[in-house]
Structures are given as structure tokens and as C-alpha cells.
Computed example of a mutant assay.
Amino acid sequence: MSSGYSSLDEELEDFFFTAKTTFFKSAQSKAPGKNVTKAVAEEKPKAPTTQEIEQIINSYNAKVTNCFVMKLNEDGTYTGFIKVHLKLRRPVTVPAGIRPQSIYDALKEVNLADMTDKRTSFYLPLDAVKQLHISSTTTVSEVIQGLLKKFMVVDNPQKFALFKEMQRDGQVLFQKLSLTEYPLYLRLLAGPDTDVLSFVLKENETGEVEWDAFSIPELQNFLMILDREEKDKIQQVQKKYSKFKQRLEETLKEAGGKPG
């Protein structure tokens, strides 16, 4: 059950974001010159000052076409909005009898600990989008936990990962974000245009699947999905060779009686 995006890591290895730096090319992509005899440690960029942040925010807000502007606080932190697309291929686990609230409804805080221990699985819409109001100190880990809480999902947050989606050379590329990065800072640097940068919540593909981390309803759903995919694949193969057989028989019939 491959995610379909892990192969993009190789293309993105030369580009990366950090919470304190801008978008830049990795220094290791260039080989050192022949005359270089001593490696020079790259100086770490300094964190932007409050005045610099204010200038960037003003430039950002000037490009905003809706009401989702950023606001600078007196302590140097700032708040703003990010939009997260939920592209989950697997079902999520929710308390039994509880359907996750609509993404278009006003979501209220829910204490999952007060709910029943019985659980069931539910597929979130592939086009689900959530607008989040966060701070510049909000980490990727906190964004993931907040999203799960809003949708009343009781799955382990480690099953999920936040990705940044970018467009380069006409291609859509994804890169997994570190749990300690700050999404609002990335949004500020990229500007408000979601075609330049957007955020996507996906399953956390780390290689080998740890099946023990999933609940019984989730495992049962996986079996149903695999069974359906297997049947579809069998039908596709049968249809393909049925057409091939038909064309071969027609060709042999047309060639019947003719000299070889």
C-alpha cells in the first residue's frame, strides 16, 4: 500500500525549509573546488528581527485577497491562517456512534477522553480542507494533533505527517515536514499564494508498516480495500486478454484460406 509520493524525496533532497531560515539550495550539492584545502563551516543565518518580521508581514498582507491576514503581536510573535488539505487514503478511527463533524460546520472542542471506548472507522472526504488560525510558535506536531482533535480522530498522531506541496517545472512535489517546524513561518515566507506552497495531511509512511498500531476496525477495512483492489485488478487483466484473444481470433479468421 504505497503512498505514491515517497519517490519524490530524491528530487527534493537539494531543497529544504527550516523554521529559522529561508528557502535555499543545499550546500552539499556542489563539490568543493580543487584548491580548497580546508572545509569552511557554513555560518548559520540569523533569526529575523521583529522589525524584519513586521516588514515581511506587511508585504504578505498586501498580497492577501481575503480576510486571512497575519497579525504581529507585541512580544514579536504573530498569528495567521494556514489551509490544510486532508488527503488520507486510509480510514480514521473515531468513537463509536460519532461521525466526524462536517468540515464546513463550526467545530467545537471535544474531550475524547469522556467518550466511549468503543471505536469505529470512518473515511474522511479526499477533498476535505481545514482553515487553521495558529501562531508563529505552533509546531507541525501541534497542527497534526489539533486537526485530529477537531475531527474527533482518536488515532495515534504518529500515524500522520504534514507535507508541504509545491509546484516546480510544471510538477507537483511533496516534502514531509519535521515535527518541530513552524508552518506559519513557512506560509509567511512563501506568501499567501497556495499555488506556491500549500499544506497536506497524509499518512506517515516511514517504510515498514507497524500493523500492531492499528485497531481491529482499521485492519478489517484494509482487508476490504485490498480485496476490492485485487478483484478490480483481476477484472482489468481478464478484460485486456479477452480483447487480445478476440482480435487474434478475428485476424486468424480473416487470414483463413489465404496463402501464408
Rank of each mutant, 00 (worst) to 15 (best):
D14E: 12
E54V: 12
N156W: 10
Q145G: 06
P157L: 01
G260D: 11
F15T: 04
Q171Y: 11
N58D: 11
S7K: 15
K150W: 04
F160A: 00
A213T: 13
R119C: 13
E218K: 13
V64L: 01
E249I: 07
R247E: 09
Q167T: 13
G80R: 00
K253P: 05
L197D: 01
T138C: 05
A19W: 01
M224V: 07
K130C: 04
F222S: 08
I103F: 15
E229Q: 14
D193G: 03
I82T: 06
Q145S: 05
K164A: 10
P157C: 01
M1T: 08
S215P: 07
R119Q: 13
E42S: 06
K38T: 14
E13P: 03
N35S: 13
A190V: 11
D14N: 14
F244N: 11
S215W: 04
T93S: 11
T50Q: 15
T22K: 14
Y185I: 06
S7D: 14
E165R: 14
V154W: 03
K34C: 12
L72F: 05
G76P: 06
F15W: 10
E250R: 14
V209A: 08
G76R: 03
G260E: 13
Q175M: 11
A39C: 10
D195S: 09
I144L: 00
V140A: 00
E229S: 15
R99I: 15
D232W: 13
I144S: 00
V237T: 10
G97A: 00
N221C: 12
F81R: 00
V92A: 03
K44V: 03
L186Q: 05
L107D: 07
Y241N: 08
V143P: 02
E254V: 04
T138H: 02
A39Q: 14
G146E: 04
A47Y: 07
S7W: 13
F17Y: 15
K245D: 13
A106D: 14
M166H: 09
T116I: 04
L197I: 01
Y182P: 03
K202D: 02
L132S: 02
G191T: 06
K149W: 08
L86N: 04
T22S: 14
G146F: 02
N66I: 02
K202N: 12
K176I: 00
V64T: 02
F214S: 02
T137C: 09
T93A: 07
K202M: 12
K63E: 12
S7V: 10
V200T: 09
K149L: 10
K243T: 12
A190N: 05
L188A: 00
